[in-house]
Amino acid sequence: MSWCELPGYWLGLEVLERYGCRMADGLVITMQLVAISSLLGFFLAVGLALLRLRGPRPVRWAIAGYTTFFRGTPLLCQLFLIYYGLGTFRLFWQDVGLWWFFRDPLYCCLLAFTINTAAYQAEILRGSLQALPKGQIEAARALGMRPVAIFIKVEMPQALIIGLRPLGNELITMIKVSAIASLVTLFDLMGATRLAFARSFDLSIYLVAALIYLALVEIVRRIWNQMEARLTRHMVLR
């Protein structure tokens, strides 16, 4: 008996014992999807937020359009547009040598999730950067700091204090909405659960899946508490 059958065995839940390994594989895919897309999305969002605030006017407008579109339309719709919509242009993708990317549902999901979360994270960061008092930057300039150093050492640490909780909320949202990956044939945690349910018709497997998602969210919440304590350690009253 392998380790992933044990939880079901201990709980005396036959369906979890039979599909425990599929659920474990699914959990790995869900975590990969969320971790990679959120991280890539964050780096993208830093650039987008900066350009949105300080770029040339047409770039600012373009980014405003991008965030409006991706925050204003359902993620499922975006995913289907990428997976089925872009998927119809196979000959074009083969010509440009990108078919391997659009053929794979995992990559399509990563692309959809990344550009979606980047839009949200960019707006969070833009708001956080705008909330900083002007005096901070002026003081840093008066000290002779260069713009890049000001951004990394003065602005970002303070913007992250403001933006940390909303960014955490965005990550939690991503964990939950990643379940739609199962609709484009991926066996993520939800996909594995649907398979187990379709075979056993035992509803308790959905409860197990819900508890696993809940545990993931709880872990993120605790990590975020630690990160906030670390980032604000200079502000704690002694």
Binding site: Y84, G87, T88, R90, W99, R103, P105, T185
Partner: peptide, 11 residues
């Protein structure tokens, strides 16, 4: 229908 579509798409 979605399976048919993906066969058509070549996936």
């Amino acid at each position: 229908e979605e399976a048919n579509l993906d066969l058509l798409n070549g996936r």
